[in-house]
């Protein structure tokens, strides 16, 4: 579904990704972990071309994306993203937030877009919030709307960059629940998170980044209980599981 080969990314002199090879299968849930600054966000942002890697290839659905020549907005429409700070459009209602991309990007007709958006809103449990503005929502509700907004483009995969890090602790659960439902529906997901419980229970694979390299790529059982990697064990102690 998403495959990278020898991906390199630098900001000026700082090399942040030093040759990343990952291969994410359809329907897989991959949790990406690593200490702050290890390059998790950068990797995620490279996967939907918000950042352009300088070297290496990215294949979406087996097709190599030419970063220089292609219309990247078409590629981005296929891989959705959910942000730490939600980034809802404050001047649009919840429903308008979700309808925006189908209407503008896919040029769907209004009735169809509305129907789809309302269905997605139901799916994240916020049918009653269709006509309110984002500033009237709690953080957890905002993030659920953001997930519905990303789903409205019917993406092949969804990327999550610390989707619960900006939330009050009591609101984390409702967002993780929505993500778990998505995973059960077979959505392909790459998730950067510090929620180790989610990683244990929902992830098919856990990938650990360290200083721009993948140092571990294993199923949760192996990762949490049988890792022989020194850095991984240090990390697990730090997040104390």
């Amino acid at each position: 579904m998403i495959k990278t080969m020898n991906l390199h990314k630098s900001f000026g002199d700082l090399e942040v990704l030093k040759g990343i090879d990952i291969d994410i299968n359809p329907g897989e849930v991959v949790v990406l972990v690593g200490v702050s600054g290890s390059g998790k966000s950068t990797l995620l942002r490279c996967l939907n071309f918000l950042e352009k890697a300088q070297e290496g290839d990215i294949l979406i659905d087996g097709r190599k994306v030419d970063r220089k020549k292609e219309d990247l907005s078409k590629v981005r429409a296929e891989v959705g993203m959910v942000f730490q700070h939600f980034n809802l459009f404050p001047h649009k209602t919840v429903l308008e937030n979700i309808m925006e991309a189908p209407l503008i990007v896919k040029k769907e007709d209004k009735e169809k877009a509305k129907k789809l958006s309302l269905a997605l809103l139901g799916k994240v449990g916020l049918s009653d919030k269709a006509d309110v503005y984002p500033n009237k929502l709690s953080g957890g509700q905002k993030q659920r709307v953001a997930i519905a907004r990303a789903l409205a483009m019917e993406p092949k995969a969804l990327l999550f960059d610390e989707p619960t890090s900006a939330l009050d602790p009591e609101l984390v659960g409702e967002v993780l629940q929505v993500m778990q439902d998505l995973a059960n529906d077979g959505m392909t997901m790459v998730v950067v998170t510090h929620e180790m419980k989610f990683a244990k229970e929902v992830a098919d694979r856990i990938i650990m980044l360290d200083e721009g390299r993948i140092i571990e790529d294993a199923d949760p059982e192996t990762f949490f209980n049988h890792s022989t990697n020194e850095r991984t064990r240090q990390f697990l102690e730090m997040v104390n599981v």
């Binding site: 918000l50 219309d71 078409k74 981005r76 429409a77 993203m81 980034n87 925006e100 991309a101 953001a146």
Partner: peptide
């Protein structure tokens, strides 16, 4: 306007001018 607004627009598949017209400029 918060950078995140542009990123969210692009991540949804909008091109630069759609993001400007629909999301950034109104704000």
């Amino acid at each position: 306007v918060d950078r995140g607004q542009r990123e969210a627009s692009l991540a949804l598949g909008m091109n630069r001018s759609q993001a400007m017209r629909r999301i950034i400029f109104p704000q």
